[in-house]
Amino acid sequence: MTAVTVNHGGPADTASVREPFGHEVLAVRGCESLTVANAPRSVLHDPAEPWSPTNCYMDVWIGLTATLGLDPLPMLGAAFSADFLGDQWEFLKPRQEDLETLYGLTVGEYDTWRPLAEHVQLVMSRGDALIVEVDAYHLPDTEGVSYGRAHTKTSIVPLRLDPVAGELVYLHNDGVHVLHGEDLDNALGTGVGSGRVPYPYVELVRLDGIRSLAPEALWQRAVEIARGHVRRAPDAGAGNSARPDPADRLVAAIREHVPVLAERGMEYFHQYSFATTRQAGLTSGLAAHACRYLSRGAQEWPSDVDAEQLIEAAEQFDAAAGAAKALQFKLARAASGRTPRIDSSAEAFVAGHTAGMRAVREALGLGE
């Protein structure tokens, strides 16, 4: 039991307890003393990264693993199997089985059949974590974008809760933040029903099996996970002309959609680019990080993995990530009524992503 009971001065203070979160200070295991100031930060959330923050779910896992003292880089093999789904690039998530194999963390959907605050209190009292969909309208860290302006769903992880102070330390996007008072009540308490996500999707992360493998053992598991994702991937880099690779299919769809952007304007552009160029760009950027991690292990430990080809793959994926950002800027020009030339950026994205996947296949011994 991780819950810590705090004496706030006896019966006279009873009225100050913020319902419905009870009166105990609660924390996810290992986060009992966590603050915004001392929270660890992954290299993946370096402000210099072109696509940081990534997407809300990937960011949760980057932040949670780092907070728990685990390395998030081994789980990035999922980037190799991402696909274009016809109207959007796949929303990148680490696979549940990968998280269990690497870290001993078990993840699954959690049924919120009672008030959400009661579930938060119960789960945190065991030291486990919840990934909760909330309304970003009530998250101060989205100031200037959603906070007090726009209702949109996003995922957070409550890490440390002080109900009497009305304060929650939580993970969101690329950092650790604090939620207070009415915002806390509206995000997770009695005000939840009035938001964008009155019945939130919630996942339970159980920490009872958490483990920190030795670096070589962790790398070896990451290699096998990466191979699994490459085998699962669409035809990118495989040289199969029967079906265009996902980068080609994305660019073809974007070309067809440029007139729609010009017609519907900037608000539509933000939604469209989030689902297409942003997801493709961040996936490419994380694939580059995965390649560099795998390459470092191949240089340090004996294996059949080609470290130099992985460096080449990382450079190609970095180029694809940059090209996706350039393409996104040009689509914004289209949405603002101009006539941009997108061919160079589009072709650079296809070339980088396809070459990156080909190099990964060869480096991991999966080439044709």
Rank of each mutant, 00 (worst) to 15 (best):
E368S: 07
A236C: 12
T339Y: 01
I210M: 14
V192K: 09
H177F: 00
R211N: 09
H180S: 11
L130N: 07
D235N: 13
F317D: 10
L76W: 03
T2C: 08
E118W: 02
R232H: 05
L286Q: 06
S16K: 05
G108C: 10
S125M: 04
D71H: 11
R231F: 01
S344R: 14
G193Q: 09
V178Q: 05
E90K: 03
D59S: 03
G104E: 09
L34M: 04
R278N: 08
R338N: 06
T5R: 15
A78M: 10
G86S: 10
I156V: 14
E308Y: 13
L213N: 07
P246G: 08
Q271P: 02
P302Y: 15
Q309L: 15
C291W: 12
R264G: 00
D235L: 15
S125D: 10
F84E: 09
E312Y: 02
P50N: 00
A226P: 00
L282D: 03
A66W: 02
L105E: 10
R95M: 10
L207M: 05
H151L: 12
A236R: 11
S303E: 12
A348Y: 05
V260A: 14
G239S: 09
S284F: 14
A39D: 15
G104D: 14
T154N: 03
E267S: 10
E24K: 10
I342M: 08
E224Q: 09
W113N: 09
A262W: 08
T339W: 02
R18Q: 14
A15T: 07
W113L: 07
S42I: 04
R278L: 09
A321L: 04
V132N: 07
H229C: 09
A222E: 07
W89K: 00
F84V: 07
L261A: 13
I254L: 14
L364Y: 13
S295R: 11
R292H: 05
L34K: 02
S303C: 01
E256W: 07
P259L: 04
V202K: 03
P200C: 12
R196F: 15
C291H: 07
P47R: 02
L364T: 08
D13L: 05
A37Y: 03
T5Y: 14
A39Q: 06
G352L: 12
E256P: 04
P246M: 14
D248R: 13
V230K: 05
R296V: 11
G209F: 11
D208C: 10
E97S: 13
V205T: 00
S155W: 00
A214G: 12
V60N: 15
I225H: 01
Q279T: 09
A136R: 06
G191D: 02
S336Q: 12
S194C: 03
D13A: 12
V25N: 03
R227P: 09
Q96P: 00
N186L: 12
E97M: 07
P158T: 15
I210R: 13
A253M: 12
Y268T: 12
V169A: 08
P140S: 15
D185C: 04
R296T: 08
S344C: 03
N240W: 02
W51G: 01
R211V: 13
V43K: 01
E24M: 05
E24W: 13
S344F: 14
P158F: 04
S52M: 03
E49Y: 15
T67Y: 00
A288G: 05
G195W: 15
I254G: 01
E300Y: 01
T276L: 02
G175C: 07
A236F: 04
T67M: 11
F317R: 08
N55T: 05
G175A: 06
K330D: 12
A233Q: 11
R149K: 08
V197Q: 01
